[in-house]
Simulated assay, not measured.
Amino acid sequence: MGFAGKRIWIIGASAGIGAALARAFATKGARLILSARDEAMLAALAGECGGAQVLPLDLALPETLEGAVAALRRSEPLDAVICTAALYEPSRVAGIDPGKAAEMVRVNLLGTIEVARLCPPLLRDGGQLVLFGSVAGWVGLPGGQPYSATKAAVNNLAESLAAELAPRVDVRLVCPGFVRSRLTEKNRFAMPAIISSEEAASQVLRGLRGRRFEIHFPRRFTLAVKLLRLLPHALVQRLVRRLG
């Protein structure tokens, strides 16, 4: 898939990978619609991206997504919808703040489900629906809850959608490792193989041009985690307990 002239809607575009993706697509000549909660940040980003359309919304408020979808339904079909929006608060299970946990579930999981429910009719035949899961959803690690649990659910959701929506919609799942952003700034541990948001965006574009359902990076880290998942459960548990 080339990106010149393509209409691409990025949900969660105001910062991090979403903003880096917007800049990367803009350099390829894509026509962008940018959504997130912060309208001022979106407006500034749109100025960097050739006057992209700004469509503020909050995935915690389903009616705002419904309004955005209704507005886009009146225009030409989209070539891709990319949902990067997520909240993150590292915590062990015993220390979870119930309010923050509920907000993460509301945005990361229920918000993504609403994107998956409402957005496919906006896509042209063969258009891409791109959901962001995470390597954090592959293996349960100490301190990752409840973010990791929501991302494990998104990983599973994308697999189901790929079967349900084929062949009209090309569903893709993006599973990043550690990426420098305002979310990972909250971590208080060494993050192996961490990369910049710009490098992450480059990896996503490369993956969307290809045919693989799951786009994961950096591979020197993600392949090691995939190998970990193949080990016997008892051995995996011994290994991850050491991380705690």
Rank of each mutant, 00 (worst) to 15 (best):
residue 53 Q to E: 15
residue 242 R to P: 00
residue 212 R to S: 15
residue 177 G to N: 04
residue 120 P to W: 10
residue 142 P to Q: 06
residue 65 L to E: 04
residue 194 I to F: 01
residue 148 S to W: 02
residue 135 V to M: 13
residue 135 V to S: 03
residue 206 R to V: 09
residue 116 A to R: 03
residue 54 V to G: 00
residue 21 L to G: 05
residue 157 L to V: 07
residue 221 F to K: 09
residue 211 R to Q: 15
residue 169 V to R: 06
residue 134 S to C: 14
residue 144 G to M: 11
residue 38 D to A: 10
residue 84 T to K: 09
residue 206 R to Q: 15
residue 21 L to Y: 02
residue 147 Y to S: 05
residue 149 A to T: 09
residue 115 V to F: 03
residue 41 M to T: 10
residue 216 H to W: 09
residue 239 L to I: 11
residue 138 W to M: 12
residue 125 D to H: 08
residue 31 R to N: 11
residue 24 A to P: 01
residue 154 V to M: 07
residue 158 A to L: 05
residue 214 E to R: 15
residue 181 S to Q: 07
residue 135 V to N: 01
residue 69 V to K: 02
residue 205 L to R: 09
residue 85 A to P: 03
residue 51 G to F: 08
residue 29 G to K: 09
residue 242 R to C: 09
residue 86 A to Q: 10
residue 105 V to Y: 06
residue 11 I to Y: 07
residue 115 V to I: 14
residue 5 G to P: 05
residue 207 G to N: 01
residue 40 A to Q: 13
residue 122 L to C: 05
residue 227 L to D: 11
residue 228 L to F: 12
residue 214 E to M: 12
residue 220 R to K: 13
residue 119 C to A: 14
residue 134 S to W: 08
residue 50 G to R: 07
residue 197 S to V: 06
residue 8 I to D: 00
residue 140 G to Y: 10
residue 127 G to R: 05
residue 7 R to Y: 04
residue 145 Q to P: 03
residue 1 M to F: 07
residue 235 L to Q: 06
residue 81 V to N: 00
residue 21 L to D: 07
residue 192 P to Q: 13
residue 148 S to L: 02
residue 87 L to C: 09
residue 2 G to M: 10
residue 233 H to I: 06
residue 200 A to I: 11
residue 35 S to N: 08
residue 207 G to C: 06
residue 67 G to H: 13
residue 194 I to V: 15
residue 215 I to R: 02
residue 6 K to S: 08
residue 103 E to I: 05
residue 115 V to G: 00
residue 19 A to F: 04
residue 84 T to S: 13
residue 209 R to A: 13
residue 134 S to D: 03
residue 125 D to W: 08
residue 144 G to Y: 11
residue 192 P to L: 01
residue 78 L to P: 03
residue 165 L to M: 09
residue 93 V to D: 10
residue 96 I to L: 15
residue 118 L to D: 03
residue 133 G to A: 13
residue 92 R to T: 13
residue 99 G to D: 14
residue 94 A to Q: 15
